[in-house]
Design a protein around this nucleic acid. Structure first.
Lengths: 249, 249
DNA sequence: AACGATCTTCGATGATGTCGAACGATCTGC
DNA sequence: GCAGATCGTTCGACATCATCGAAGATCGTT
């Protein structure tokens, strides 16, 4: 792994927390200020970061938005989900989300609001720890296991690796995962895997306020049907996908 | 500028065009395949690119989406515009866009759809060459001049640097820029600068189909009022902002 | 079954990034 | 208004680290 590129990515990662001064960036990564400066200046030249004229602090730049937008526009999974999500939302009365794995997290790449006409924040782009949401449990169950410790987000978050392993085993047999207030208070959901020709491609799920929990079996059926349909459009030959667990030492 | 980081950013840039094989990436940037491989592998480790399991081709990865989303969420300009855009759209019947500069382009960071109830694509994240849109003309008029040649997008695109300079001079005196089918056939618009305490911060504009062009003076007044109001909220002391042209050699 | 085209790994070379120190500007407190 | 500190930036020497070319591995193709 190339050191300077790795450091550049780490700088972008810490800048996701908040705007930071150069010294803060350097300290956080254990670098000499001038080293951080050279990298930041390169990122500046590409618009990946911007420098506030008054304070000198650095923030993420507009080039990040362009990259993210191109990613979304070229993601076939998102396009396929978009064709089925409105119908699924209508049948279940729930908001629909789809996500893809990113290290130990899930990134939401598609979002269909709950069809009740209320004003809802678009959730595309948000990131949730995989072990704390239904989408993520699906990805962990059918994909590589988590590599870091399980951070707690609410009182219900699963933080015990053994308990998580048990839960994931059930997900593998049933093909669906559930979550009740494990990531956000008051929010519950179900999720099912999306597959393509090469295996696990992402996950699709329903989100409901706790007042609507648990969801009726009809919602689960609709979700499973949709997951199968989208997977077929993505070229999948099997659903649920075969488990691609890394061999344990 | 750090070479390897610069190359990494260039790789991300070319991957915005389409998915590419490693050899294509290397050829495009004039690198040895193994050099490109080392950089791509580092980007892979951070989720900035993903490798398609079947073809081996590389694409942008989900980490780009996370970065872009964080950028949007922390952009004060976007938040301030969001407070005024619905009212502006209602008064003018136009879609409202706000953009910030990115090298020689404009990145749309806020978008309020035309209030006629039609289904419209969200335009946040799209990139338009600065010289070919109203938003961009404003940014060029009050900010640094273009650094590259003026690419043609439609028959009406301004590609002559002298003509552009004349246009920008008028923008500086009037405080608004116009565009008629210079970027997209059938699309016209007006734009005005947004300022903060340090000067030019971005631009806000109206977009209308050509059937509604030219816009009435009331729309121009509403746009100018909104630009002033948003600028005041951003801490601007003067509007339009003072011109920060680079000194010509 | 042999070929071709990939992506990937490996090792030696020297160009390049890294670090520490000094400079300049800005802000804080006296 | 002045001294001190803090921060961003620049500069130069050292040695690490990225780079390149060639070989290896793995696929799909002829």
């Amino acid at each position: 792994m190339i050191q300077s590129v790795d450091r550049a990515m780490r700088i972008l990662a810490v800048l996701q927390g908040r705007r930071m001064s150069l010294a803060e960036i350097a300290n956080r990564l254990g670098l000499a200020p001038s080293t951080a400066h050279g990298i930041v200046r390169t990122l500046l030249g590409h618009g990946m970061v911007v420098q506030e004229p008054d304070s000198g602090h650095y923030r993420l730049g507009p080039a990040t938005l362009r990259l993210g937008n191109v990613y979304l526009d070229t993601l076939e999974l998102r396009a396929r989900v978009a064709g089925w999500a409105p119908e699924l939302a209508r049948r279940t009365g729930c908001a629909v989300r789809a996500g893809v794995p990113l290290l130990d997290d899930v990134v939401v790449v598609a979002h269909e609001p709950r069809p009740d006409g209320t004003r809802q924040m678009p959730e595309v782009g948000i990131v949730v720890p995989a072990h704390a949401c239904a989408l993520g449990k699906v990805l962990l169950a059918f994909g590589p296991p988590p590599s870091a410790s399980l951070q707690s987000m609410t009182a219900a978050t699963i933080t015990d690796p053994r308990l998580l392993a048990l839960t994931l085993a059930k997900v593998r047999t049933s093909g669906v995962a559930a979550e009740a207030e494990e990531a956000v208070i008051g929010e519950c959901g179900l999720a099912a895997p999306l597959a393509d020709a090469t295996g696990l491609a992402g996950a699709i799920g329903l989100v409901t306020p706790i007042s609507g929990w648990p969801l009726p079996d009809t919602a689960l059926d609709a979700l499973r049907d949709t997951a199968r349909a989208v997977s077929r459009e993505l070229g999948a030959t099997a659903w649920p996908p075969t488990v691609a667990q890394a061999v344990s030492a």
